[in-house]
Design a protein around this nucleic acid. Structure first.
Lengths: 125, 125
DNA sequence: CGGCATCCGGGATGATACTG
DNA sequence: CAGTATCATCCCGGATGCCG
């Protein structure tokens, strides 16, 4: 949308260039749980507590979740807000840069549903 | 688009349901190079030779590329075509399921460009 | 020469117990 | 509740060899 897909041309030189750009940017999303985390934060439409995030990212463990959240925070994708109270409360939300991933995540979630439907179809033809 | 984003509602029960669906589907994209591979195949608009793919996925090594391609093939995302000739020629292309990831990958690539621009802006304000 | 397999070291990931 | 610490495991990367 923003780029009008001007990058999708046949010029090898140009392709090499955006290949580099994407590889570089995708490095931020590297890590087993990052896309899952972002999808969940995006779908929730609001900040999520650590425990809630942990519940939604099925199969993740505390250590990994914390680590990946730290990296996402460092890369400017999520914000971490601490509420000084007992019991402790920490919320995570998407930054502007993180929210900009929204369209992509939305399409990804649609794909997930489409895929699940097709998988179900194959079992009952 | 396909789902009209009907999944993006406030109902906790519903959210838990699609959280599970997405987590499950995203497992297919798990692996350090899979999204990069798909992005490159999508951007190329055509089948790519192994060596060409290797060149475009900057930083990958043969072993990893082969492994990830095998998993993607097993999960029905890419097809592998062998041309019996010397020197050997093997081409990889997206399946229908793989092409369905197009919109998401396109948005992802746009995000990559947007991010690169913003990173450059921060260095020269 | 291009595509692919195998062996091994190091770093990422996971399971569990523990703390403020 | 939200982390930290420790140790086991597995994925990843580099090097090397094979085969048409």
């Amino acid at each position: 949308m923003a780029q009008e897909r001007e990058w999708r041309c046949g010029d090898p030189q140009q392709q090499r260039k955006w290949a580099e750009a994407t590889t570089d940017a995708l490095r931020v999303l590297e890590g087993k749980w990052k896309i899952v985390i972002i999808c969940q934060l995006f779908g929730a439409k609001e900040a999520l507590r650590f425990s809630e995030l942990e519940r939604r990212c099925e199969g993740v463990n505390q250590k990994m979740l914390i680590q990946q959240l730290k990296e996402l925070e460092k890369d400017g994708i999520v914000t971490r807000t601490v509420y000084p109270q007992v019991p402790p409360k920490v919320e995570y939300a998407l930054t502007e840069m993180g929210k900009a991933l929204g369209p992509s995540m939305a399409e990804l979630i649609d794909w997930a549903f489409m895929r699940r439907e097709r998988m179900a179809d194959e079992l009952t033809p």
